[in-house]
Each structure stands twice: as C-alpha cells, then as structure tokens.
Design a binder for these strands. Sequence first.
DNA 1: TTGTAAGCGTTATCAA
DNA 2: TTGATAACGCTTACAA
Lengths: 344, 344
Amino acid sequence: MTPPVTLRDVARAAGVSPATASRALAASGSTSTDRRAQVHRAARELGYRPNRAARELITGRTGNLCLVVPDLENPFFAAVAKSVQARARAAGYAVFVADSEEDPLLETELVTQLGAQADGVILCAPRMSETALTRLSAGRAVVLVNREAPGVASVVVDNVDGVRQAAAHVHALGHRRVAWAGGPADSWSDRERHAGLLHAAEQLPGLEVVDLGHFAPVFAGGVAAADLVAASRATAVLAHNDLMALGILDRLRSRGTAVPGGVSVVGYDDVPAATLVSPALTTVAVPFARLGRAAVDALLAAPAPLAGGATAGGAAAGGAAAGQRLTVELVVRGSTAPAPPAAR
Amino acid sequence: MTPPVTLRDVARAAGVSPATASRALAASGSTSTDRRAQVHRAARELGYRPNRAARELITGRTGNLCLVVPDLENPFFAAVAKSVQARARAAGYAVFVADSEEDPLLETELVTQLGAQADGVILCAPRMSETALTRLSAGRAVVLVNREAPGVASVVVDNVDGVRQAAAHVHALGHRRVAWAGGPADSWSDRERHAGLLHAAEQLPGLEVVDLGHFAPVFAGGVAAADLVAASRATAVLAHNDLMALGILDRLRSRGTAVPGGVSVVGYDDVPAATLVSPALTTVAVPFARLGRAAVDALLAAPAPLAGGATAGGAAAGGAAAGQRLTVELVVRGSTAPAPPAAR
DNA sequence: TTGTAAGCGTTATCAA
DNA sequence: TTGATAACGCTTACAA
C-alpha cells in the first residue's frame, strides 16, 4: 500500500518548511495568506491526514472523549450514547464507548484506562459511591450523567419534579393509595425520586404512599414488584423507570388485573418501548438527547482546556463543579385512568 | 497534579536502562528473570501507565477498534455494540463507537476518519453499495456485520434459513396466503430474506406469497405495512424485522384485527421488546452477542497483524475474504396460531 | 542480556 | 513571517 502522507511531504510539495506547514494548517501562529493557501492545496492534493498519535504526543490532547455506561442495551443509555456521540463528532471528537455491566469495579477500571486515552470522560454510574466518584474525577475531566457527587460536574434531570408531576397526576385522577416500586437501593436517582415522592405526598391531601421496596431496574424487577402491588391495595403504582413499569404492566395483565381499570401505572424515562405496549405507558419523559449533548458541552466548556490527564481537575477544577439540571415532563398515555369509585 | 510516570522513571527506579525496562514490560526480546521482576515491581509501585500515543507512533498500532452502526437506538445494533465492546475489552482493545444515522455518506466518512485511529473497523452498513464497501476496505482491516461484499470479511446470519423456518412454521399452521413486509429496497439482508422466502415457498405446497413492498425497518414502517396486510387477504405476515412486526401488531390491533386470531405475525431478530408486547412476538432469533464476538475475533485473527492502516488489506487480504455465517432459530410465541378454518 | 542512540510525525521554541 | 531544532514517550536496531 501507499505509505501515509506526512507533514514533511506536504511541506516539500508546498516548498516550505514543516514548521510553516504545521502553522498554516493549524491556523495557529502567523502565516502569510498565500503560503497558507499553498500549503492547504498541497495537503488536499496529497490527501494529507495528520497523525493523531504524533500530535497527541506533543500536545497532550487526544481529540477523543470517553463514555462509560452501565448497560448499552438499556434504551436509556443507548439514547445517551447516541446523542453524546453525535455531539462529540460535531465538535471533532471521537468517542470511546464502554459498557460497565453495572459493575462499579469495572466502571472504575474503564474510566482509568479509557480516560487516559481521552480528553474527558462522560460517566453514567448510578450506583458508584460518591467518594469513589470524587476520587475518579481527580486529575481528570469528568461529567456525570444523571448522578451527582461533590466536586464533580454533572448533568441530571429534575427527578424530584418528575415524580411530583406523576404523583399530582394520579392524585388528580382520584387515586389516594399509591405504591412506589423503587429501583436499586444504592441508585442515586432512585433516592431522589423516592424522596421526591414523599415530599409530593405531603402537598397532596389524602395521598398515601405504600413503599414496595427495591427492585432491579429492569423488566424482571417490575414483574416482581407487580405482585406486591396487587397485595398492597394501591390503585396506582409509580415505578422507578419504564423498564420496571413494563414488567409491572405485563405481570398485572397476566394476573388478570386490568390496567388502567384496576390499577394505574406510571413509568419514568419514556423509552421507545413505552408506546409499544397496550395500554401505552404514562411516564415521565427524560430528554435523553439533551442529556447527552449537555454532557459533551459541559466537558468541552471545561475551564482547563482538556489536557490529557496531566492537568488539574478539568471540569471539576476549583472545587465547585458545575451542575446542570434539565426539566422533565409527564406524558399521559393509556396506563393511567381515574381511580375506581370504590377506592375514593 | 503529579506528572505522569514515564518509562524513564520506571527504568531509573529499577536501576536499568529505558530499553531494558521496555523489554521487560513487553516480555519481548530477552531479559533476565530478576531484571524483569525488578522492573515490574518498580512499574507497579510508581503506577506506571504506558503512553499509548508514543507506542502507536512507533509501532503503528493503536490498540483500538472502531464500530460503525446505522442507529445505536435500534436494539439490534445496541446489542452488537455491547458484545463487540465486551469482546474487544477482553482482548485489550478499546472501541470507538459511531452512529452513522443510516447515512451512507456519513458511514464512509466515519470509517475513514475513525478507521485511521483504529487497528480495525467493524461495520454495519446494510445499505451501502458493494463497490463502496470494497473500496472502503482497501488498505484497512474491515469486518462487515450482517452484510457481505466481494473481498471483504464478514459475519452474517443465515437469512435464507431464517425465513425458511418462519415460512415452514406458518405453513404448518395451515396458512397458505402469506404476506411479506420487506425492509428497505437497498438492504442486503432484506434481499436475502426476500429471496429466501420465495425459495421456501417453492418447497411448501400451496404456499402463496404476497409482496407488500418495501418499508422503513422501524416501527412506523410496520404501521404502514399493516394496512396493506389487511387489504391483502393474507392470514399471516412475515416482517423484515421485529421493529416492523411490532408496528404491524400495533396497527392491526387498533384496526380491530385480532392477532393471532385473524392474522399471524412473525418478526426477525428477537429484540428484547418482542416479549414486551401481547401477544408476544414469534420471531427468528438472531444471536446478537455471537455476531459481535465473531466480528471482533475475525478482526483480531486477521492475517496481517492489524497494522494501523499503512498495511494491505488486513482481514480482507488476499482477495478471498473470510465469511462467517451464524445459524438462527425460530422462536414461537403468541403472535402465530393456526390459520382460520375458512382460509384453509 | 544489556545499554546507547536513532527515530516515529507532530508541535513549540527561538533566532533570523 | 519563516526555518532550524528540540522535544513528546516509546520501541528497536545495533553495539557492547
């Protein structure tokens, strides 16, 4: 095959020194207009592609970002990955994507390894400890998605307001006994959502919250929760996320409990599958794409110019890390309806 | 922050030259056992992490792979991404993931750009032309997933046998008039599946295939196809993939056509959502995880030792590219049932 | 088996 | 504004 075209080749073809060629192409430093044109033409004609490794070696910047998620098959994270990747590309960055399989140990390892090859890390780690997160973000530009930790930049959604909307909705429909099917006990967003529900209940006269406990944030977790719903005498159930809500829906149906006739169900996230089921799922819509974009923007706007890892804190520099909170919106579909008269 | 630990630091701490340190850590070349131990200990104590850029600059290998898919939110590609990423990590590779938004132009650009930073590319490009694929694979190690092209390595599933199983299933249930809801006209797998169906029909006495045309391989495409199903007097419909089948299911339901009572529906892929709907979808299960793993293995087993891009053909070297074909299996669920007696 | 030294392709420094 | 020249951190001849 043809050997790669180097900057020297371009410089030679343009009749200038490599240094000048570099400046002309980088548009950094001063270069006369005609020289620049010459160099650019030569580069184009030769099909010059800068060697990123060589550039990285001296600048310390890779031009890459890194995204770590717990599960790529979870539509929530797939959507985040898609938008992160799109935004990064628009900014000229490539993205390493890694799946941590919900394993905090692997999460740490991935951030350490891949983070070394990237200018910044976007991390979805709902269950990692705060201290671990803070430690991981030291000496590295990190932005957390849907998670907060002291001193670490983050982009989250308004979990408290989301469940408030959900609770207000079922309350308005006449439901008074509402069950909560929680996610993992160590999930940050679950703690926020649960607290938000309790807080909302205080404002909603007569609303009683039945805590069903913690479940795996997947379909099977919802299936398990459904049986407790049935036993709880609640007329509505709010789930930690859509995947669980879909499990609840499925299990209630096979138990012969009508939805929304017997029990109303509300999810969280608004994953695509929420509209595939019947009745379609009433849920709190999370702006996935905006989450991903905001995370990339936060990384690229970091105070430190994203030096490879040798530099201080990056997005987290200075102690007071920027936190961004996106609004969410309840989407009412078929899985919620007025409470049965008997229950009012 | 602390400056990164370099090989020189390790060498100094171990009391050897950088060259010896390099050899000791790489286990390449000859090093005495005690020296090696010394160096390893020093490296561990100092927390040495080799600079990949420097290594790449001299070896020409990046230690990265690149995966390009049309849509990360499509559960099919999400599953492939997950398994590719896992297998690559096990082999010590990081993975760039890029979403081409179903755009052949962007696909080409991504392969060219990201491929330059990777030792190999795994490409899902159902709709790119064969010539474009062959051209793209020149001078680059490329493995195609669920797609074949002359001279390019690939890992595909047995599309023909998949539809054969589906056709045999509905035929055995007594269906004689079967509709085919095709995917995009330029989709390679759709051409295979369609041809497979026609071929299967020849072997199944009395089976008549009604061609409904081509649709977008997503939920909305299925919705569009559903109305044609109803008009076709077919008692069963085979869809290009699950997403379409789910759209068909949904639309038939809202039209008042019972599934499987009135019409039986068969999908392709077996995405997780196939079991979320009711009735659950009978479908041809594609081994996503094995597809991804096989693609990585094919890349890493390539004849050329994966040189960064300066070397010839990689996996495709020699002209006769390796093609691997995985078997698929029909999973019968609730969306298929015996044909109505009137139709027999 | 080990050390010295020469690069890999780029950017940054410094004179001119 | 330009061109030598020195890095960046590593691997690999080649010599000892």
